[in-house]
Design a protein around this nucleic acid. Structure first.
Length: 275
DNA sequence: CCCGTGCATGATACC
DNA sequence: GTATCATGCACGGGC
């Protein structure tokens, strides 16, 4: 449980006595002087400074920053809304829309702005890659299903992307899920090391799962995989053709994974089979 | 011997 | 031609 709601690198959090974790920046802020400008805190590490001013600057684009940051708890007197910063390797145009939606679509509090978000994302962000085959608009059906689960909890579920499982994805012996590069880089924290880092997901039962997001270099590119899925895929009985959707839960900032079984009727077996 | 991990290769789609 | 992704295979560790 990330109490501050921030998505941060795993090495910049602190474990709280009452459970869960909090990013160091927010932890410092809460300890130093709650009514004081955090930027003035004497022990404030500049690298953790995410004051509204900094966020605004970052929103304008800081190519040196490669970490995706989602800051949810900002002073209400500011107009800065949850901000997503993504590595500069991605297409700035599409991300500008992505961030724009995040930054401006605040009138729908309590409800999800996911439709607009995904619409802009898929209509422009995936226009150049074949990931459109996998990352596409979440179907209203599956989305509604997830929304209904979290709505009573005052949590907004923001759909990120989805993928249809391939035979290899659903193979429990592999226990790993290939994540489309664009989606991995756009929606998950930047993986800086090949061995990756753990990410905690919640399923639709609000059970927490810890998967490992990593990559390996492949043909001058990167191939992202989510590992440690064996238990989950066994529980969900993953099969090729099933659809896995990834969401983010706001304001908690947690990731949500949901599996939607293949609704299509199975292919008719050839008459040569038993019988 | 079995299983998991890491990598290489081929197929496909896009530019 | 290039980038991305699916899949197969080799290697190493554990039982």
């Amino acid at each position: 449980m990330v109490h501050c709601g921030c998505i941060m690198s795993f090495h910049v959090y602190t474990v709280l006595d009452f459970g869960g974790v909090c990013c160091i920046k927010c932890f410092k802020n809460s300890n130093v002087a709650p009514d004081q400008d955090p930027s003035q805190a004497p022990n404030q590490d500049p690298s953790f400074n995410t004051t509204p001013e900094i966020l605004q600057k970052q929103k304008l684009g800081d190519p040196s920053d490669k970490v995706m940051t989602v800051c949810h708890e900002l002073p209400q007197e500011t107009n800065v809304k949850p901000l997503v910063r993504i590595s500069p390797s991605q297409k700035q145009d599409s991300l500008a829309h992505f961030t724009e939606q995040f930054s401006t679509d605040s009138s729908n509090e309590g409800d999800t702005s996911c439709e607009t978000l995904i619409d802009s994302e898929t209509s422009e962000g995936d226009s150049s890659g074949k990931t459109c085959s996998y990352s596409q608009n979440l179907s209203e059906e599956s989305d509604d299903e997830v929304q209904e689960i979290f709505r009573p909890l005052n949590s907004a579920v923001i759909p990120l992307f989805e993928k249809f499982l391939t035979p290899s994805d659903a193979d429990p012996k592999m226990a790993r899920l290939v994540i489309p590069k664009k989606s991995a880089e756009a929606y998950f924290p930047t993986v800086t090391e090949a061995h990756g880092f753990p990410i905690v997901f919640q399923d639709t039962q609000r059970k927490e799962w810890e998967f490992n997001l990593r990559f390996w270099v492949n043909c001058n590119s990167k191939m992202y995989v989510l590992e440690g899925l064996k238990e989950y895929m066994t529980l969900m009985q993953w099969q090729a053709g099933d659809k896995v959707t990834f969401h983010r839960i706001e304001p908690e900032g947690n990731f949500l994974i949901a599996t939607k079984k293949n609704v299509k009727p199975p292919p008719k077996e050839p008459p040569s089979a038993t019988g």
